[in-house]
Write a protein that binds this DNA or RNA. Structure first.
Length: 291
DNA sequence: GACTTATCATTGGGCTCCCG
DNA sequence: CGGGAGCCCAATGATAAGTC
């Protein structure tokens, strides 16, 4: 059995969501490519040495890959090693990111928030294209702070959200959340949020808001992503709408007299992270120049 | 810091329309 | 009626952003 097929088996036998397993599989496959191309002749995962890993890291750096990316790849490789019974090796100091020369990457976000004008322009453009469902999805992302996937899967929740908003309750996001963690979002601009929910309800078609040709979640996702990219500025991604929401939450909490730190913490909770993530929110979401 | 899961960018397949 | 330009979109690959 080749080292490649060993990798494949290891990638699959391990745990994780569908996407995670798939990614791990790809990473290990590329690592196997590297070993082959470099003519490093290893028959088994058992025989992998630190220097092989080191060479891989160097080559990736050389190739111009980001440090964060390589760190992520190494996480998968270590996982495979552990799965193959080499936990001690995988967790050894020599196999740490620091020793391999891939530590210390910046974790600050690179996206910026969508401004109100840009939001309005994107909505107009979507209307002109008669992409009403996509326009509604963008509205939900902007007023409720939803991720793209959450907005696609919002169809099941729109009625509930409408009711919750009417009563002044937090909005409960259940479907499509990262890691399947539900969250309650405190909405300050209730009117705008209600409007977005109504709009989305009206844009639904056969029980769904967004549908791709293939009828899968993935195709719906790609369609929305593509459509939004065409009407948003080049340096803006759909996720930027969520940044805007985060900023507006922070501003509202501040206006209510919260300290900066508490405002960040509250906004963090609204985005579905823990309160302890306030520092992160400050870095990633609250880029002052756009507030 | 390490590991998992999401978003984003790029690629390329396949459709349509037009020309010869 | 074949083939290629141009477009649209889904698949694939890369990377950012989550949690533990």
């Amino acid at each position: 059995m080749s080292i490649r097929s060993e990798f494949h088996q290891l990638a699959r036998s391990a745990h994780g969501s569908h996407d995670t397993v798939k990614t791990r599989h790809q990473i290990l496959d590329r690592f196997a490519d590297f070993l082959r191309d470099e003519n490093i002749q290893l028959r088994h995962v058992q025989n992998i040495r630190t220097k092989d890993i080191q060479r891989y890291c160097n080559a990736q750096l050389e190739h111009g890959k980001g440090v964060r990316t390589i760190q992520n790849e190494l996480a998968s490789i270590r996982y495979a090693l552990r799965e193959a019974g080499r936990a001690e090796f995988a967790d050894s100091e020599a196999m740490g990111n620091k020793s391999l020369g891939i530590s210390g990457a910046s974790r600050e976000g690179t996206n910026r928030a969508l401004t109100r004008d840009e939001y309005q322009q994107a909505r107009d453009a979507l209307e002109a294209r008669e992409s009403y469902a996509e326009r509604a999805a963008l509205g939900l992302m902007y007023t409720l702070g939803l991720r793209t996937k959450e907005s696609i899967m919002s169809d099941k929740s729109l009625d509930d959200w409408g009711r919750q908003l009417e009563r002044g309750e937090p909005v409960r996001v259940l479907y499509g959340t990262k890691g399947d963690r539900p969250r309650d979002v405190h909405i300050h601009d209730r009117e705008a949020a209600l409007e977005a929910v109504q709009e989305a309800k009206g844009a639904m078609h056969e029980g769904h808001l967004i549908t791709g040709d293939a009828g899968t979640l993935k195709s719906a996702y790609d369609r929305l992503q593509n459509e939004l990219r065409e009407v948003l500025p080049d340096d803006i991604s759909p996720h930027s709408a969520r940044y805007s929401f985060a900023q507006s939450q922070v501003n509202h909490y501040r206006a209510e007299g919260y300290s900066d730190r508490e405002a960040f913490a509250q906004a963090s909770i609204d985005l579905g992270h823990g309160a302890g993530r306030w520092r992160y929110i400050r870095h990633v979401y609250d880029q002052r120049e756009n507030t």
